[in-house]
Amino acid sequence: MKSESDERAEQLTRRQFVAASALGGMAVAVGCRAGARGNWEYLTDGQAGTLAAICDQIVPADQFPSASQAGVLTFIDRQLIRHFRGHQDAYRDGLEQANAMSRNRFGLDLADASEEQQLELVSALEHESNAFFELVRTHTLEGYYGSPRHGGNRDAVSWRMLGLEEPPLLGRAQYDLRKGSPS
């Protein structure tokens, strides 16, 4: 036989359980929305703007697209939660430093500076924070010249720039097994 106090405790616990479940569900829903990062998987929109300014000074647009136009940011962003996970801190600190340098020199975020100012600042970054600059430069080139399947090199633009056809044209050999094996 259960006592009255036992039953009350059991009811209370059941209510708590239901309430906790509902709260948990709400937390998951709210958490999903709070975790949204615009169009990026790791970068914030602000960091992406700063990184685009740096990448576009490394590979600027001419008759072919610039680094950001060719999807290099997508490449770096995807890899920052995968193969480049170990570089997350370097990117976070480096982009913050680049923006701080820009604000000190021009009173503007790097993304809002003129192209001439961006070039000046990225040149300064190369000397003052060489390790970060080299990291971004390496990743920019990997994204620009790597396989389009990883997010960069949109429509294989850099390969066409180098004179390579992509996808390659491959016609079939016209043979008939009944007349002998194909050469």
Binding site: S147, P148, R149, D155, A156, R160, E165, E166, P167, L169
Partner: peptide, 19 residues
């Protein structure tokens, strides 16, 4: 756009070569 099976993605017609 042409869906390239090897890359698993589309390539826009204007970016493809005419030999």
């Amino acid at each position: 756009a042409y869906f390239d099976r090897r890359e698993g993605m589309h390539f826009a017609a204007v970016s493809l070569p005419i030999p």
